[in-house]
Design a protein around this nucleic acid. Structure first.
Lengths: 393, 393
DNA sequence: TTTCTTTTATTGACGACGGAAAAGAACCCT
DNA sequence: AGGGTTCTTTTCCGTCGTCAATAAAAGAAA
């Protein structure tokens, strides 16, 4: 079925069996664990874990560790197993409209180096050139770290087919059917994983963030757009037609402002960055250059500005409640550049969510976490790590 | 983790390995298939399929069959394998507010007999008595069919924990934490599966209906309430807190009519049966006894009545678009008693869906299928069949 | 009619994965 | 030191699924 793209591999991961892959990802995502604990969580026998762990330790991906602190009084102390982050490096790249952001992370997806280069042109060729430059820089930085770079993840907004490695349609870049993985592999020589940006961020949360260990959760990003990544039954939802998690285009007010999608009162048309700026301009009559100015006005207490943010918060809360009502996730993680305005709408998000959540869907744990701008690129790196670990599953 | 309830089993299913279970369910759900074709779909070798099939044929669950028609000119003709529906029987029961509906189905979930008994009282004891009576009747009817009855499925609205076999909370019956599976097993002597009614219906569609072979789809039920069952990544979504698929409480108009959930403008508050009746009464000033009368008025062309249905259709279409935007299912199956009014709002559902679906989410195939009243009970039977097949997986 | 081609089904050998059980290891407590 | 407890490893073994070869069932070609 799946066409085998040329995937150069400097080094292969010593995991053949599904059990071993499970063991590794559990240790990777759930921190240092005793073998027996891994066995319990994965549903394997202790013996199987021992066998799976050995080659991974020999290859240097896992290391043993004794925890001195939380040792129970009784019995043989546990030999914790954890991933040696320094064993391998990965590059993650996020392509935005006007720049390309890249990070070098270790195997535990901790950022080691972050860089960005401007994007003069959005044509595939120019983007590839920028990516190549950025990757080159990061590889140079990786030279001193004594660890091989084993993969590159690229995150792009729009309809991306990760399995194929192609960007099917990206309105932002005005791309259609660009075989980005193949192209990037050719220019960088690394195994490349291409994914949608929100999904990539979701993968990062799922493996290395607030979603670790959960089988059902959602990530909501608040920024220029309002996006949502969903994990259901332990897997990121991709959508049969490439569309999923479009919380930004959930209608919250059919009489609301017109959205670029053609409908009225979408969450994004009320709470998106552009929408907030526009509404504050309308209310105050002052021209604003960017969202930072809008934020400043609201913080200064300019009449009407706070209300715009309040409405935005309410719209987001409603959208989250819709997700909770439909999917019943354990947790919702709110994130995004827009969180700079968090103090302005946190309360309204929460109130609107609580009001609109049906029954025990309101028990869903709604968290907030700040999102530094490199986080998107880190998500891309997470997809590369995932591909590496899952290489031959 | 999972407590082992006492599950009496008249007969056990000769399937030990996960591969065999997969083979059986594909044959069950995807009609007669050649072994090689099964192998392709499941991702196993042909040899493995042969080995998995043999004991199932010996036990009488599968039978061989040569299809005379669509035989390719070349090569050895395929020996199709299909499930012998008559090999085993199952009982499905749906508990509504005022009656209990039951069906006797075969292994292919084809209804053989349908019965219903009134429900004088909603207390667990009374419900169990009604269930017992109904099951007794159906077992008597099964006597002539030369096949054992191997399971009972019970469908109840509300928050149901299928794994535990308990009804955690059913507002309709006013139940809390009723260990229904255990109780019903004691009174009927059959292995019992308890599940939420909409999820049960979804299982039936997934295995025996328009969702067969799909890994991502939704079932929307239009009736007294508006419900939704979701299948994501090939599994029915249950929700971390017992709530999922609450499309009925997706807000489509924040200024709309008050819903019993406390919010305004929920889909159900606009398109639910009670809401439609109430709105038509308000518009026409005529007192209506039930939904049938409301329907009749609309069909007669009473001014305003049609518009109420149009608005209902629009609300449903919006709700479906929300599901499509968030999950990107391959297909949405609209069903329910409310479909009697289908001609009145089909067009509006479709229009609202198309308008509110974002991008290629609109490619989602929206189907309609009538839902006879026994269908809910058939869903319950489907869960029993599923439990039987998955017994020791 | 015989032989070839094509496709499906079956067989038996083989490898490997994971479980059970028992032994070993490391620590505390008495 | 010895018992108790818990974690880890070892050894043995069942069994599941793949591989490769073979059988089977047709139509087509010779």
């Amino acid at each position: 079925m799946r066409p085998t793209r040329p995937t150069p591999r400097a080094e292969s991961f010593p995991v053949n069996t599904p059990a071993a892959a499970q063991v590794f990802t559990t240790v990777l995502t759930q921190g240092p664990l005793a073998r027996l604990e891994v066995a319990r969580r994965v549903g394997l026998s202790a013996a199987a874990v021992t066998k799976a762990v050995r080659p991974l330790i020999e290859a240097g991906y896992l290391v043993e560790d004794v925890d001195e602190e939380s040792r129970p009084a009784l019995g043989r102390p546990a030999n914790l197993v954890r991933v040696d982050g320094g064993r391998a490096l990965f590059v993650g790249v996020k392509v935005t409209g006007d720049e390309v952001i890249g990070v070098l992370t270790d195997l535990c997806c901790r950022i080691r180096v972050a860089r960005h280069v401007p994007l003069p042109d959005r044509a595939p060729k120019a983007v590839l050139a920028s990516i190549a430059e950025l990757v080159h820089d990061l590889l140079a930085a990786a030279d001193g770290l004594q660890a091989p770079v084993l993969g590159l993840g690229v995150a792009v907004s729009g309809d991306v087919d990760r399995a194929e490695g192609t960007v099917r349609y990206s309105p932002f870049l005005d791309w259609r059917d660009v075989p980005l993985a193949e192209l990037a592999t050719m220019t960088t020589g690394l195994p490349v994983t291409v994914d949608n940006d929100v999904r990539a961020l979701t993968v990062a949360e799922q493996w290395f963030g607030a979603g670790a260990g959960l089988s059902d959760f959602a990530v909501v990003t608040v920024g220029a757009g309002i996006g949502c990544g969903l994990v259901v039954h332990g897997r990121v939802v991709a959508g049969a037609h490439g569309v999923a998690g479009e919380i930004g285009h959930v209608t919250v007010d059919p009489t609301g402002p017109l959205c670029h999608c053609g409908n009225r009162g979408c969450v994004e048309a009320i709470a998106g960055e552009a929408a907030v700026v526009r509404q504050i301009q309308e209310v105050t009559g002052v021209q604003l250059a960017d969202a930072a100015q809008a934020l400043a006005m609201a913080h200064e207490g300019v009449p009407g500005a706070r209300e715009v943010y309040a409405r935005a918060g309410e719209a987001i809360g409603r959208g989250i409640a819709t997700v909770a009502n439909l999917l019943g996730p354990e947790r919702v993680i709110i994130s995004g550049e827009g969180l700079a305005a968090y103090d302005l709408f946190a309360e309204h998000i929460r109130d609107a969510f609580t009001a609109a959540a049906f029954g025990s869907a309101a028990q869903c744990d709604v968290q907030t976490r700040p999102l530094p701008f490199e986080e998107w690129a880190r998500g891309a790196a997470a997809t590369a790590i995932q591909s590496f670990v899952r290489a031959d599953t």
